[in-house]
């Protein structure tokens, strides 16, 4: 139980995907303009990350490893995630229109997101078992949400600030992103102190 908690906290704070591993930067910059889009995107990301892990971990463990073709992870995982998202989208559209509307355009957008592929592959690299993988994916998704929410707040302030003309738009956004990322360095070592 403690191990799972450590994995969860580590993936949310210390190894935050966006701010420490720099995965999923595209949606991080693209949809962090306001809290509504940030919410939709992050819920969709958590949803897809959990589902993808639930399908890619068994594929890796029960298909790729026994057949000795572990090197195919990238290819097979991309294939599985893309098919899975398509599958879920079709079903949601019919069965749960409100949820489909809420996730909206974000669901297909995440299909090719590096953060989703990243979490599934890192689960394998870390040699997590199934439960640990699921917790790690949840943590990564929540960490993504946290990063997006924090940054949406930062951006709303930057929008009101008197930014020099040459820094307006993307440059100041990137600078702000790097500062937020830097602040997450503060969590380094926290987990060891708490649980170690």
């Amino acid at each position: 139980m403690k191990a799972l908690l450590v994995i969860l906290l580590t993936s949310i704070l210390v190894d935050n995907f966006v701010l420490s591993k720099f995965l999923g930067i595209c949606p991080f910059l693209g949809v962090s303009k306001n809290l509504n889009t940030a919410m939709g995107m992050s819920v969709a990301v958590i949803f897809v990350m959990l589902l993808s892990t639930a399908i890619t971990w068994p594929i890796h463990t029960f298909v790729l490893v026994p057949l000795g073709v572990g090197f195919l992870v990238t290819l097979v995982f991309i294939l599985s995630i893309a098919a899975l998202v398509q599958f879920v989208e079709t079903i949601l559209k019919k069965a749960m229109p409100p949820l489909y509307k809420a996730l909206g355009i974000y669901l297909p957008l995440i299909t090719t997101n590096c953060a989703v592929l990243g979490v599934t592959i890192l689960n394998i690299d870390q040699k997590y078992d199934f439960l640990q993988s699921m917790f790690n994916s949840l943590g990564v998704g929540v960490g993504f949400m946290l990063a997006l929410f924090l940054f949406a707040g930062v951006r709303s302030r930057v929008d009101k600030a008197d930014v020099p003309k040459f820094l307006k738009g993307l440059p100041i956004t990137l600078i702000a992103a790097s500062l937020v990322s830097l602040s997450f360095f503060g969590f380094k070592g926290m987990i060891e102190k708490l649980f170690g």
Partner: peptide, 18 residues
């Protein structure tokens, strides 16, 4: 052949399901 069969098989399977 084995990787090709696995990837192709998975793709076929997913395609069929979809």
């Amino acid at each position: 052949l084995i990787p090709v069969a696995i990837t192709g098989g998975l793709a076929l399977f997913f395609g069929g399901v979809l």
